[in-house]
Deep mutational scan, measured.
Amino acid sequence: SKIRITWGDKTWEWDGDDEEVWKRILEWARNLGDEELWRHVKEWVDK
Rank of each mutant, 00 (worst) to 15 (best):
G16N: 14
I3T: 04
E35A: 08
E43F: 07
R39T: 09
W28Y: 02
T11M: 11
E19A: 14
G33T: 05
W14M: 03
W28K: 00
N31L: 14
D17W: 09
L37M: 08
V45E: 05
S1K: 15
L32G: 06
L26W: 07
W14P: 01
V45D: 02
G8S: 03
R24C: 07
I25E: 00
K47D: 05
W14L: 04
L37D: 01
W12M: 08
S1R: 13
I25W: 01
T11N: 06
A29S: 04
T6E: 10
R24M: 13
G33A: 08
L37F: 15
E35N: 06
K2P: 08
E19D: 12
E13W: 06
D34N: 09
K47F: 06
V21Y: 02
K23I: 09
A29R: 00
A29H: 01
W7H: 04
I3D: 00
E35G: 04
A29K: 00
D17Q: 10
K42M: 12
E43S: 09
V45W: 13
L26D: 02
D9H: 03
V41L: 11
T6K: 08
T11F: 11
K47Y: 05
E36C: 09
R24A: 12
E43M: 07
L26S: 04
W14Q: 01
R4N: 07
W28C: 02
L32W: 14
I3S: 01
W44G: 01
D18V: 10
E13I: 09
N31K: 13
V21Q: 03
G33D: 12
K10H: 10
A29N: 00
G16R: 12
T11R: 03
I3K: 03
R4M: 13
E35F: 04
E27A: 11
R39W: 09
W14D: 01
E43A: 10
W7Q: 03
D34K: 02
W22G: 03
R39Y: 07
W7L: 05
L32Y: 15
D9C: 04
W14K: 00
G16V: 10
K10C: 08
D46M: 07
V21P: 03
G8R: 11
E19M: 14
D46C: 06
A29C: 06
V21K: 02
W22E: 02
V45C: 11
V21N: 05
R4G: 05
I3L: 09
G16K: 13
R4P: 01
E19G: 13
W38K: 08
R24W: 08
K2N: 06
D9Y: 02
V45Y: 15
E35H: 05
N31W: 13
I5K: 00
E43R: 07
I5C: 05
W38M: 14
W44N: 02
R4T: 12
R24E: 05
G8F: 11
V21H: 02
W12N: 03
S1E: 13
D17E: 13
T6R: 09
R39P: 02
A29T: 03
D34F: 07
I25Q: 00
D15L: 09
E43I: 07
T6N: 08
L32E: 15
G33L: 07
E13Y: 06
G16L: 13
E20G: 14
V45F: 15
L32A: 14
I5V: 11
E35W: 06
R30G: 07
D18M: 13
I3A: 02
K10S: 12
V41S: 00
K42W: 11
G16W: 14
E13P: 00
G33P: 04
K2F: 10
G33K: 06
D17V: 07
E27G: 05
V41N: 00
D34L: 06
W14E: 01
W44Y: 09
K10Y: 10
R39F: 08
L32S: 15
N31T: 14
G33I: 06
W14T: 01
W44M: 12
W28Q: 01
L32H: 15
I25K: 00
I5D: 00
E35M: 06
R30N: 08
D15P: 10
